[in-house]
């Protein structure tokens, strides 16, 4: 494995982002805007803002990175650049780690800005630390990236890739306990949610906000999902085609 090739790939992806300032602006401003709307929609029920806004800090990076990654890798597949790369001296793991590094950096910037806005002007109160919150946001972003990378191999067009967001992520969001507490759901839903990565992302942010419950196990689960999905993603990067 070569750090040079991973870093070259990460820099290349960041350059592509840099040439697309509108996407960068949307990545950072859209979550801030949504947080602000949420704050004033629930101005009479501040406890709802407290409960939902924190979890959203972890969910946004995931949604955004999912979309960006699935479109970006689909483009690499359809434009022939992926096939081109796979016959050059770069391994599939290096390729994926390059993506992870680039989007990890993007997620870091996003998380710092959005959490600062939420904790500052919007007055979100948390019992845990902001650093922990940012760390979780980055892990969630990487999870979104890993899902996007894997899923994009099932999409033939960008239209399909984008449709996987409502199909794959929104059901997870509903089951994760973000909107309604998990205990009040049918037992089968609770059971299914145990096997969904987003559940742990939401749980972890909830713990940081309330300051109760251990984050360690949630982070462990997220990491396990991350590694599994990245490996599955690596398998879909086929060198040979039929």
């Amino acid at each position: 494995m070569s750090i040079r090739r991973i870093w070259a790939t990460a820099q290349r992806i960041l350059s592509q982002l840099r040439h697309d300032p509108r996407t960068i602006a949307l990545m950072i401003l859209a979550p801030c805007l949504l947080m602000t709307i949420l704050k004033y929609v629930y101005q009479d029920q501040p406890q709802v803002f407290q409960r939902v806004a924190g979890s959203l800090l972890g969910v946004f990076p995931m949604l955004v990175m999912f979309l960006i990654t699935s479109v970006a890798t689909l483009r690499e597949r359809t434009s022939g650049t992926l096939e081109r790369l796979l016959i050059l001296p770069i391994s599939r793991l290096e390729f994926i780690l390059g993506y992870a590094m680039a989007f990890g950096i993007a997620a870091f910037i996003q998380a710092v800005v959005v959490s600062t806005v939420a904790l500052g002007p919007l007055g979100l109160r948390i019992n845990g630390s902001q650093i922990m919150l940012i760390l979780i946001a980055i892990l969630d972003a990487l999870l979104g990236m890993a899902i996007g990378l894997f899923i994009s191999s099932f999409a033939k067009t960008e239209f399909q890739a984008v449709q996987f967001l409502p199909a794959i992520l929104l059901p997870q969001l509903l089951l994760s306990g973000l909107l309604a507490p998990r205990e009040s759901m049918p037992i089968i839903f609770q059971w299914i949610a145990n096997f969904l990565p987003l559940t742990y992302a939401v749980e972890a942010t909830k713990s940081v906000i309330s300051g109760v419950g251990s984050i360690g196990t949630d982070l462990l689960y997220i990491t396990v999902f991350l590694v599994a999905l990245l490996s599955a993603g690596a398998v879909t990067l086929k060198r040979k085609s039929k």
Partner: peptide, 8 residues
């Protein structure tokens, strides 16, 4: 079909 990154 030139396999290059058109956004670079």
């Amino acid at each position: 079909s030139a396999s290059i990154y058109s956004d670079l």
